[in-house]
Computed example of a mutant assay.
Amino acid sequence: MYKAYWGMEFNPFEKGLSEKNFFQSNDFSQAMSRLEHLKAVKGIGLFTGISGIGKTYTLRCFTNSLNPNLYKVIYLTLSTVTVLEFYKSLAYGLGVEIYSKKIDLFKAIQERIISLSRDKKITPVIIIDEAQYLKTEVLNDLKLLLNFDMDSKNYAVLILCGQPLLNNILSKQIHEALKQRIVINYNYEGISKEEISEYISSRLKLAGTFSEIFNANALEAINSCCNSSTRILNSIIEKCLILGCQQNIKVIDTDIVMLAQNEINLILFKEV
């Protein structure tokens, strides 16, 4: 109902929009340029930022741009695992036989990566999301697993993606060797105040609405409430549109934004 009220053909602030319609934020552009460089040089890349800031979406856009004849993507989301479980999940993604012993898995995984790179000219791209949950033992093994030809070759791309806590974890002395192997590092800053207005306007136009629905004060309030998170931003905007429709108003102001924020906080509080 609220979509018709505001003249929108669909909700442009929900998940699932095509990559071609994605808003090109500064974070997105910066991260994508680094991923392209990592693709060329191979090795380990580190990408961090708060939840809902667009990290995983960037990775999805990046992997969708890769030629499947030249790259094999292994995306691992279950990071709260033991070392052996990690090896098994990686072996499964690489199409390697699952052995019961770590030493056999280690050998099989390395041989598979080398075979893909040397014989088939295919670069494995291993992505570990929510990497801040990786156990110390897994992080220790990562640098061993990617040690090829006495640490003289890079046959694969490893992307560690997680929250800022991951930077603190890797700064510890025990992970110094792994940290030194990171060739690309980017920390997301989040959507800026200047980008929010452009983002909202471009999303509404995409849905067929060209009028100014949010006034300047509302945009200021939205910026203060979203904490640089695109996910929170989308939730606030959608709630504002619903409330605006219910109250039969033509322009959303600060009062509507704060009401939307309060309702979202109440939902989150109940979930906790």
Rank of each mutant, 00 (worst) to 15 (best):
Q247Y: 00
I126D: 02
D27H: 01
G162E: 04
I114Y: 07
E220Q: 12
Y133F: 09
N265G: 02
Y2L: 07
S171A: 10
L70K: 15
A207L: 08
K88N: 10
N167S: 10
Y199V: 03
I114G: 02
L59P: 00
V83E: 13
E14D: 10
Y188R: 02
P68W: 09
N11R: 02
I74A: 06
S171K: 09
L142V: 06
L243V: 14
K270V: 04
S228M: 12
E198P: 08
S79V: 02
E220V: 09
S117G: 08
L160G: 06
E9L: 12
T123M: 03
I126H: 07
N168W: 01
L259P: 00
N227I: 08
K179E: 04
N227H: 13
L144R: 05
Q246W: 00
N248D: 15
F22E: 11
T48Y: 05
L144Y: 12
P68T: 08
K107I: 14
R112M: 09
Y199A: 02
I249L: 13
E9K: 15
I103R: 15
I249Y: 08
Y186G: 04
Q132L: 09
Q24F: 12
N234Y: 08
E198Y: 07
E85S: 09
D119I: 09
Q132C: 11
W6K: 03
G7Q: 05
K205L: 10
K270A: 05
K39R: 13
K205F: 10
N140S: 06
Q247S: 14
G43L: 05
F106Q: 12
I236C: 06
V257W: 06
D119Q: 11
S65G: 11
N168V: 11
Y75D: 14
S201I: 14
K42T: 06
E189M: 04
S201Q: 13
L59I: 11
T230G: 14
N262F: 00
I122N: 05
T56H: 10
V183R: 03
C161V: 11
S235T: 15
F62P: 06
F47G: 02
G43N: 05
A40F: 14
K3R: 14
D149Y: 10
F214L: 02
A108K: 09
S100P: 12
G43V: 02
K42L: 01
G16S: 04
Y155P: 01
E111Q: 15
R203K: 15
Y199K: 01
L35G: 02
S228E: 12
G93V: 04
V257S: 06
K120Q: 15
S228A: 11
N217K: 13
S18W: 15
M1W: 09
D27R: 05
S79L: 04
M32P: 08
L90M: 10
S201C: 03
G162I: 07
A221T: 10
D27L: 00
N168K: 15
Y71M: 03
L241N: 01
C61M: 13
T58Q: 07
Q30C: 07
L38H: 02
L38Q: 05
I74M: 08
E130M: 00
I242G: 11
